[in-house]
Design a binder for these strands. Structure first.
Lengths: 156, 156
DNA sequence: CTAAATGATTCAGTAGACTAAAAGGTATCA
DNA sequence: TGATACCTTTTAGTCTACTGAATCATTTAG
């Protein structure tokens, strides 16, 4: 739905929308390959981005209740995508850690993406790559900022 | 989970992963702003990408049964995100069309992203923008290709 | 004009994930 | 040590979206 008005949008914005669609498609494909619901995939993403955390923290980050998180971690663990360990310092607490994809199909999918990206990278000079990196940094920050703004507005 | 091995990955790949996360976050934020489940959001994305289609085609594209699609379109229509019309040529058929976001909050969110992106674009020369556009085109194609490869393998 | 086929909807039943609340260990503090 | 607080799990019940089958409306074929 990011394709606005007629066809008069700035090229870079249209390109952004196209890339965004592609990213979402890839995530969906990976999710279905892993046999994960979107909610589980999201939780796994949080674990991957922010590192191991307790079940309580995960509950807070996902806006789920404690009971729901138990079931969530059950499913991730059964799929071999996360591990559950007791915190040695405080044995009431649980440390949930995202596991590196065990499924060879998933690993292969990421490897495929990695080499495809390497081929793309090879087509640019170091100077150009620096420019691209700068754009990606700025765009990423902008998108993240907008997502945060939406979330903040939503809470009001 | 795209962060591989230690920290020795090529910078552009890490940046890609970061951007990918940001995009997913934004989509999630928009989805929750619209009050849509992930499945509904996905269906809406298909409608947006591929244009209006009959309920049966939508069922095929989403891998849902006909009955489920009726409920899906009910929800989208109630939320003002899609419209239902009978096909004038064959009045048994239904044409489902994605509507431009009616909710002012959603429109505002997209507008916010648009101006943030415009600010990013303003920081580069036309030459640089051409390089960036080329990278985005190639990356988008690569990611799309990988997603298709996964989907194809999945069907085997 | 009737019979068969097609597209969408309705209905009954089911499954999965969620919440709220009670329960089970574990830690902290007096 | 005993009482209390904390973190996770379990349990019971609910809700939502799904499937498969029956139904209604419309079109096509004979």
């Amino acid at each position: 739905m990011p394709d606005a008005e007629p066809d008069q949008m700035l090229e870079p914005d249209r390109l952004g929308a196209d890339l965004s669609d592609a990213v979402v498609l890839f995530h969906e494909a990976i999710g279905s390959l892993m046999g994960l619901s979107a909610a589980d995939h999201k939780a796994l993403g949080i674990l991957g981005r922010e590192g191991p955390m307790s079940a309580g923290e995960l509950a807070e980050r996902t806006s789920l209740t404690a009971g729901a998180v138990t079931g969530l971690v059950d499913r991730l663990e059964r799929a071999g995508l996360a591990s559950r360990e007791r915190d040695p310092a405080d044995r009431r607490r649980l440390v949930v850690t995202a596991a590196r994809a065990a499924d060879p199909q998933v690993a292969e999918a990421f490897a495929g993406l990695g080499s495809a990206m390497a081929a793309v990278t090879a087509r640019f000079t170091p100077d150009q790559l620096e420019t691209i990196a700068e754009w990606v940094r700025l765009t990423s920050a902008a998108v993240r900022g907008q997502a945060a703004a939406i979330a903040a507005r939503r809470e009001a």
